[in-house]
Write a protein that binds this DNA or RNA. Structure first.
Length: 315
DNA sequence: AATAGCTACAACCGCGGAATG
DNA sequence: ACATTCCGCGGTTGTAGCTAT
């Protein structure tokens, strides 16, 4: 039956094929993918057509544009919240597809693993430019513990999140502290330099890839310097425009789900909680500290970078 | 200049759930 | 109610381009 049909084409798409697919979508909309082959328009499966449209041909995609710091932050936060639900995470990132997010996260995990690997061994790096251009101070108490946990976490599963570490109860203090006006609650970790247990007071680290040592010898790249300059602007987040593809629960609020500061339920109490939170258990905020404003957060924080990774040290 | 290793990304595959007959 | 088809998602693989040696 399948043998009677013309051979199914695989591999890279030609411009002519793209054109045919685009015309089909123009006529019938992004659906009926299987009919494209049954009509003899393309020798591609419906799945292949859909994938091509969603990932490459759909309008308003940020093709060839690297993830910004803000996008990276969103992915990290949402991944820790939702897990590897790339399609869901992608709905919070206009112009990004689930494939983009998935690939970004995968690349990031590999980089992280390599950095930790290189920092855990004294053997010279094979060819990693990151490990050579950024010194990581392993002398800080607690670092080895932390690094090995992160590494274990990243090798045991695709996801490297602090929640995994949290479950191990290896640390004295692990608290849930929300970033200002973020939709989800990032997990921050404190380390103490005075004990063997990783617990450093006054060092709050919102990203799981962070190496917990405040005395890192780091030179800011031009990109980071530009970033720091932008954080001086209290209205930094206002530059982000409306989100086209926001999930309904967020679109219903103000069309700017993630990238713009909002008054939250933890603020002056005059605003209703975001509908988004309806999805979560009511006791999930019990141990959350009061929110600070985004501008306060960034003005009171210092941005650091290890390789391509950024993190914030709170003053 | 050649080569090896690394990275980012495009595309495929398998699976599960929804829709349809 | 059941079988089949379609669609969407997450995981995986292949590869082109870049960088370091």
């Amino acid at each position: 039956m399948e043998g009677k049909r013309e051979e199914i084409r695989k591999g890279p798409w030609k411009a002519e094929e793209d054109e045919i697919l685009i015309n089909h979508v123009k006529k019938y909309g992004p659906r009926d993918w299987s009919s494209i082959r049954s009509k003899g328009l393309l020798q591609r499966t419906g799945k292949s057509c859909r994938l091509r449209w969603v990932n490459k041909l759909r309008p308003n995609l940020k093709n060839g544009c690297k993830f910004s710091l803000e996008e990276e932050r969103v992915v990290i936060e949402l991944q820790s919240q939702f897990g590897n639900k790339w399609a869901r995470i992608a709905t919070y990132l206009p112009g990004r597809t689930d494939n983009d997010v998935k690939n970004f996260w995968s690349s990031r995990q590999k980089r992280l693993a390599r950095i930790l690997q290189n920092s855990n061994t004294n053997t010279p790096s094979s060819s990693s430019s990151i490990s050579k251009s950024h010194k990581i101070n392993k002398e800080v108490p607690g670092f080895e513990n932390f690094a090995s946990e992160i590494q274990k976490s990243s090798t045991e599963s695709q996801s490297c999140s602090l929640s995994h570490i949290n479950n191990n109860n290896n640390y004295d203090t692990i608290k849930m502290v929300p970033l200002p006006d973020l939709v989800i609650n990032p997990k921050l970790m404190d380390f103490d330099t005075t004990t063997d247990h990783a617990r450093v007071e006054d060092l709050q680290i919102p990203f799981p890839q962070v190496v917990p040592q405040p005395q890192l010898d780091i030179t800011f790249s031009p990109g980071s310097q530009e970033l720091l300059a932008r954080f001086d602007d209290p209205y930094f987040f206002d530059v982000f425009g409306p989100v086209d593809d926001a999930p309904p629960e967020l679109a219903a609020v103000d069309q700017q789900p993630f990238l713009k500061p909002r008054v939250t339920c933890c603020g002056d109490g005059s605003e209703n909680p975001d509908a988004f939170f309806d999805d979560f258990p009511t006791d999930m905020f019990d141990q959350i500290e009061p929110l600070i404003s985004p501008s306060d957060f960034f003005l009171k924080s210092q941005v650091h970078q290890i390789g391509d990774f950024y993190y914030f040290v709170k003053f």
